[in-house]
């Protein structure tokens, strides 16, 4: 990093520090993404997301990053949930009801075992 000459430089420095911190933080966390396009919402994606939130809250799970995103492009497969454990491949689950979501949280996110029966197959 060159010498700080202005407030703008300072701002950039802070932003870069923040980015590194975020990357570090996310590397050690489980990422969960719920697809919330129009069809996903109609298929119950909000209830699925809520079930995940409630599980995290009840079990006091640390280091979970939960995000929602638009249509994930798997038509007829909603609600879609992507789970990425630290240093592991992303797993895409389809037709995830709130009950299945709780199972995924318990067995995969907490237990580390992928629930293959609900995983998306091409």
């Amino acid at each position: 990093m060159p010498t700080i000459n202005s407030v703008e430089d300072l701002k950039r420095l802070r932003e870069e520090a923040q980015k590194i911190k975020e990357m570090r933080d996310q590397a050690g966390k489980t990422q969960i993404v719920v697809g919330m396009g129009t069809i996903g919402i109609a298929a119950g994606a909000r209830e699925t997301l809520k079930a995940i939130l409630t599980f995290v809250e009840e079990k006091n799970l640390p280091d979970i990053i939960l995000r929602q995103t638009g249509n994930l492009g798997l038509s007829g497969m909603d609600p879609v949930v992507k789970v990425t454990l630290p240093n592991q491949e992303e797993v895409v689950y389809v037709k995830v009801s709130p009950n299945i979501a709780r199972k995924i949280m318990q067995d995969h996110v907490v237990g580390g075992n992928v629930l293959t029966e609900y995983v998306f197959k091409e």
Binding site: V34, R46, E47, L49, K50, L53, L66, R67
Partner: peptide
Amino acid sequence: GNLADTFLSLLIGT
């Protein structure tokens, strides 16, 4: 319907 869950999904998810 459940306005609270809608708002929470948005708030926490994004």
